[in-house]
Design a protein around this nucleic acid. Structure first.
Lengths: 252, 252
DNA sequence: CCTTGCGGTTGACGTGACGTCAACCTCTAG
DNA sequence: CTAGAGGTTGACGTCACGTCAACCGCAAGG
């Protein structure tokens, strides 16, 4: 069963414009499109939307959300992580409530109150770092259920595939290969195929990721040092991005 | 005791740029400024900041926040209102947590889950209306402690002052008076004086509100029908704005 | 057969709340 | 007297959409 864009918008309490935006940046492509380009969303898309809104409400930028959803392929484990964040948010909310109550009683009794107490629970920056750190660490460690579910040989194969892809990218970058060359484009094709093989990513059913999704990720590889490290630093990541963008532009 | 801009920024967990922004739009002027334009904030400013952050976290735009803080002059009553909102936010958060837990167990047991359950607690629009409605109603009703604290004759005087000001504005607007004329400017002066007389508003200590604050409020009078109604509808409010802006530009 | 309306579509531009950066000022310490 | 810390004021950039115009496909009604 699939739903129209307005249905989804009403269900999630966002505007249809927002959903179109998420499609445009490749964050949430509709599961299918009908006559006249009408967008249709299935249950998997709704689950993805749930996670997007969860992370958005926690204050993550949309590009980071794309990264998290890309790296965190085990939905159950990811949701447990979200639960932690939500409970932390509840803590902060309680502290804000307590601080307001302190201000209130102080105001009514004419007491003076310390500024630290008054503004307790507001500092949001520390927490934000914590979020990205958690997700980054999680993505790197891959110590989650999905990873264990792969089994020993599955893990080895996955590692090997990823390692070789990264190595080939870094190697080509070092040799100064042209991003538009056949060699680089072949690497880009491998990379796209790899992305498409990950369950839960957009385009997984069609066997290949949508153009905007690949472009968005490629941009993130250069923007985020954590990912750039996989491809030989920022210069390497830049090379990867140029090749991937060219490939996506032509083939996807 | 006053604090530097960086101190306040650290305490509240916002950037100094944000505080400068709030000054620029007249939302939170520093309580005093020293050599070289250095901003200093006292305890009253910190309390105002607390309320600003409270309302900001609840999703209100800064212009609306200015309106709320302008109309809601009784801090204690306002804080009780904020507490209600924060508790409502806690409710929504709990619902989001519950919905994530439902999704999680359904995912692990392989059940299907209804989209309504999955996205419960996300709809933010309904709530937003509720907030502005509440504050609007509050501002209109003026049935709060501050109001009662005025006493019967104080209330009558206040009502009369406000009513005459509004009537004179509406009357001048109907007669097609030029906003730049002496008559309109005299009305603007009365209006500014009235604003400055309200305890808790910026500039109250200096006896006259800062220019940006008046300009921001004037813009809100035309933007918000609730306030425009006080001044003879949108046309009336437009006239009021033009006169006020001209006055603020020259005199404040 | 035409048209009216509904529910979408794609650009393109606007906006709110800041981030970021350059150039400059003022005071303190070495 | 010079360097550095901690500010200041523009001015421009950015992110996540809002808003608006112009258009399209399809069902119903005259």
């Amino acid at each position: 069963m699939t739903r129209s864009i307005q249905d989804v918008a009403r269900l999630a309490g966002v505007s249809s414009r927002t959903l179109r935006h998420y499609d445009q940046i490749g964050l949430l492509p509709p599961s299918s499109t009908g006559a006249g380009g009408l967008r249709h969303y299935d249950d998997a898309a709704l689950r993805r939307l749930q996670r997007i809104l969860l992370l958005r409400d926690l204050g993550l930028p949309l590009t980071d959300i794309a990264g998290v959803l890309d790296e965190q392929t085990d939905e159950a484990h990811a949701l447990r992580g979200h639960l932690d964040q939500l409970r932390a948010e509840q803590d902060r909310l309680s502290r804000r409530i307590a601080s307001v109550e302190r201000t209130l009683t102080a105001l009514e009794k004419g007491d003076r109150i310390m500024a630290e107490d008054m503004l307790d629970g507001f500092d949001h920056t520390q927490y934000k770092d914590e979020v990205t750190e958690r997700w980054g660490a999680d993505a790197y460690a891959r110590s989650d259920a999905w990873w264990r579910g792969l089994g020993a040989e599955g893990q080895a194969a996955w590692k090997e595939r990823m390692r070789r892809l990264g190595e080939d990218w870094a190697d080509a970058a070092r040799r100064g290969v042209d991003p538009a060359s056949d060699e680089a484009q072949a690497l880009a094709a491998r990379h796209a195929e790899w992305l498409g093989s990950i369950p839960g990513t957009p385009g997984h059913e069609q066997g290949r990721p949508p153009k905007e999704y690949v472009v968005g990720l490629a941009e993130m590889y250069v923007a985020d040092e954590r990912f750039a490290a996989n491809y030989g630093g920022v210069e390497g990541a830049t090379f990867v991005r140029d090749a991937l963008v060219g490939y996506a532009e032509r083939e996807l």
